[in-house]
């Protein structure tokens, strides 16, 4: 028996909106730790890892570890039927082949049940080792989204370079080139407006903008995005989910051959 009651149902709605175009189907895993997902896009270039910790739920019952295969566009469609202020409860029976999403309006005058068929999904769970990154950039998530959107009007790939001068996002395309440099500015009025760059050594990597733009669909989940770069690893673009966990997008770099 699984029963997870999330007071801030909008978080789950936002999570699905941020991943449904990247990943078609995925197993949601539930254990005492929380509600989680790890999935790759169909071309295995990007990976998303989601964790919503059990403590973040108002009620969290998960009698045994369970993995529920879902088609994400279908799940997103159902969650779209929940109001932004609704409480969402996810319910499933052990060994069952359906999951139920229950939506309660804030004043309890409307209660809706949406039952969705589960599917069997063969998916490999990859081990993601703890790693030291050469550079970690924290910046306003809206600023990062803006940069990715702007650059993708010029080119298909972005070179992200971190030096002691700051972080530079560059692209080039048929019509020309673009460079956007963001310098560290830790002394702003609001901490969420700060750009903070932790650099152990300079790093420069090339990524497909199509994926970066897809990741920025998670912008409504967090004011700050953290971009971790290392020349030997996929970049990690992380959005913390208030008090609950995170959504992390991993993207393999493009390598010059």
């Amino acid at each position: 028996m699984l029963e997870l009651r999330l007071l801030q149902g909008s978080l789950l709605k936002k999570v699905l909106e941020s991943i449904k175009d990247l990943v078609t189907e995925a197993n949601f895993d539930c254990s005492a730790t929380g509600f989680s997902l790890q999935a790759m896009d169909s071309s295995h270039v990007a990976l998303v890892a989601l964790l919503l910790r059990s403590e973040g739920f108002e009620h969290f019952r998960c009698d045994r570890n369970i993995s529920m295969g879902m088609k994400l566009v279908n799940m997103a469609m159902m969650l779209k039927c929940a109001g932004n202020d609704d409480i969402i409860t996810i319910k499933a029976d052990d060994g069952g082949d359906t999951v139920t999403f229950m939506f309660e309006s804030p004043n309890q005058d409307k209660i809706a049940d949406f039952e969705m068929k589960l599917m069997n999904i063969d998916s490999e769970h990859l081990g993601i080792p703890e790693a030291e990154y050469q550079a970690i950039v924290r910046m306003p998530s809206s600023e990062f989204a803006r940069i990715c959107k702007d650059l993708s009007t010029i080119g298909d790939t972005v070179i992200i370079s971190v030096t002691k001068e700051g972080v530079k996002f560059s692209t080039k395309g048929d019509i020309g080139t673009a460079n956007i440099v963001c310098r560290q500015n830790a002394t702003v009025d609001k901490p969420e407006d700060a750009i903070i760059i932790e650099m152990k050594e300079p790093v420069s990597l090339t990524f497909a903008l199509r994926y970066m733009n897809s990741f920025t669909k998670a912008t409504p989940l967090a004011n700050i995005v953290t971009i971790s770069l290392s020349s030997e690893l996929p970049v990690v673009v992380e959005y913390k989910i208030a008090e609950m966990g995170y959504i992390r997008f991993y993207l393999a770099p493009k390598i010059e051959e």
């Binding site: 295995h44 990007a46 769970h125 990859l126 790939t157 497909a208 996929p234 393999a252 051959e257």
Partner: peptide
């Protein structure tokens, strides 16, 4: 030419 790598080049199955 930039060649796109895959995630599985970096992370291996558990």
């Amino acid at each position: 030419v930039n060649q796109q790598r895959q995630i599985t080049c970096f992370f291996t199955p558990n």
